[in-house]
Design a protein around this nucleic acid. Structure first.
Lengths: 233, 233
DNA sequence: GCTACAAGATTGTAGAACAATATGAGGATG
DNA sequence: CATCCTCATATTGTTCTACAATCTTGTAGC
């Protein structure tokens, strides 16, 4: 409990030097989250290079990274494209997300007693609540990210930290946004938070898996609305 | 139900055109498996470029991919290095492997009834047995890869197919080889195979998780042998 | 409307060039 | 002898150019 000014990378001026590839990749992720990139959209290397003011090299390296994160699809001699999930793949991603989120939560519950990041999760839940009250979508997104960051940090498992962001949830997040979804998250994250604070790995895992199923239900509902009458072979 | 001649990519002569990056990445994976690359080893871009007869570009893209697969570590202005797992991270990887292998196996069990790839798994188990009898390590590796390929194909979950190879097991495989390990695999893979054929997802998951724990036990045993007397803080 | 072909756009790849940074060798100092 | 500092060197970070390979699209002809 030292009184450092919160080393949580909370807006340090600008001493953080990042490579071009880092900047490109994270900016693209932001664009996706902001809806500025949509699934299926093609990404022309020269365009991006000009846009970011970097060489085509850097763009190509960034694409490799984004592909690993499940954000873009690469195929030879074709432009990279923002990944698009068909109905089946949507559920496949959610299957993986259920297992991994469950693992992350149970791991966090087992390590909550000795982690300096539990406060981070509490404040994330608090922010989430405020965001819903103020209907501030951007704040909500930020709080959601903070929640997951805290979840992974508390667990401390570096392999989960590495692989969790590679699950194709980014695409789902970007494609299915609704008030109901926010309400589901608000409620579920609160429960997950409590289970972790209670240091109950079994409950934490169960609630996390149920949360993903709740998301699945809501996604399915939205999906039907949009592609209901057309014959979905 | 057409009678195509098994599109299972079973050794088509060589019409498969792959990009430089593909070739580099898969060759590096082979080198790792063969012990020609060892954890901690540094990889100089210009050297590799000369070795592979390609530009530095291609090497850098390949490194990004290998980093995503958990095979190399990248850090700014330092050579890429084959990933090295400390004791804690070893267990962290195994935790993830347990969950994901369990998911993969239960998924496969649920889809075994309609998959054209079940024979692939049976033959992998058969090959495994032969490899142990003949003490042919290379054949064993090949059979192991075939087993996992079949496991993922039967399940059909593309997200698992994408993420499973990104788990840091490659490093563990390369670092801990023993006859006991092979015996564990031979026995466990047989059981997993049977559970999948019995279309029993629960059993398949349980056995898969137990298998990973068996690996953990054996790895721990080997680990101790090598770093027993030194004070492992 | 459809096919075939040609033109254009885009990616795949190598290489040169230089800046930024890490590494290690050697020397100075205590 | 140990430690710290400095500097030369190796290596990566990055952009640019160039051209081949391939996909895509538009157009002409049927």
């Amino acid at each position: 409990m030292e009184h450092k000014p919160e080393t949580t990378d909370r807006e340090i001026s600008m001493p953080v030097i990042t490579s071009s590839v880092d900047k490109i990749a994270s900016t693209m992720m932001e664009y996706l989250e902001a809806g500025r990139l949509v699934p299926g959209q093609r990404l022309i290397e020269t365009e991006l290079a000009a846009q970011f003011g970097v060489g085509r090299n850097a763009i190509r390296e960034a694409m490799q990274r984004l592909a690993a994160r499940g954000v873009v699809d690469l195929s030879r001699h074709r432009s990279a494209a923002i990944r698009k999930l068909d109905h089946a793949e949507l559920h496949e991603v959610l299957d993986v997300a259920g297992a991994m989120t469950g693992l992350a939560a149970s791991t966090a519950a087992r390590h909550a007693h000795s982690s300096p990041f539990t406060g981070e999760m509490t404040s994330a839940v608090q922010l989430l609540k405020e965001a819903v009250e103020c209907q501030d979508d951007e704040l909500f997104s930020k709080a959601r990210r903070q929640f997951y960051r805290a979840l992974l940090l508390i667990g401390g498992n570096r392999e989960i930290q590495r692989l969790f962001p590679a699950i194709g949830m980014h695409i789902i997040y970007s494609q299915f946004r609704s008030t109901r979804m926010q309400m589901i998250r608000l409620a579920d994250y609160g429960l997950i938070h409590d289970a972790i604070y209670a240091r109950d790995p079994v409950a934490a895992e169960a609630i996390s898996r149920r949360h993903v199923e709740n998301i699945r239900g809501e996604v399915g509902r939205i999906y039907k609305q949009f592609s209901a009458p057309s014959s979905t072979a």
